[in-house]
Amino acid sequence: MADTFACSFTATELDARSGISLVVKRLRDFNLPEERVGDVQIALAEAVNNVVEHAYSGQATGDVRIRCDLEREQLWIRISDAGPPFPDDQLPAGERADVSGPLEDLPEGGFGWFLIRELTNRIHYERQNGNNQLSLCFELSTLKGS
């Protein structure tokens, strides 16, 4: 059995918050385990925040579209935006931020891609018809990052 749903919202911080909450609510309706819903929410929020912060910076804000497909033990979440492509069409490496230095040098950002990579099982990115399409795959039979 396959479950699918889609939604879209304007790429602002507040609309992103309600969009993410809507997706999370639907995932709970799919009866996903709560811990897995948590993982998805973190990765999805980081991906959507990146769109809000970077994809539409310096131009009129556009939409973020999200499509979720749950089939057997795999959840795919595709996030699309009409912003410019990633530099060199490459996703950021997402190294873990270094927290070993003195307190005053602790990083206050740069955690996003690390968390996305840590919590997903597969990531696929493509540029299509002037849109970024980032797909995050979560294997539901295994828990990552626990």
Partner: peptide, 16 residues
């Protein structure tokens, strides 16, 4: 119930 990397960064900033 939920924190993202911006929220985490804000807590780090609050400590600093």
């Amino acid at each position: 119930q939920f924190i993202d990397s911006s929220g985490l960064g804000a807590i780090v900033a609050a400590m600093k």
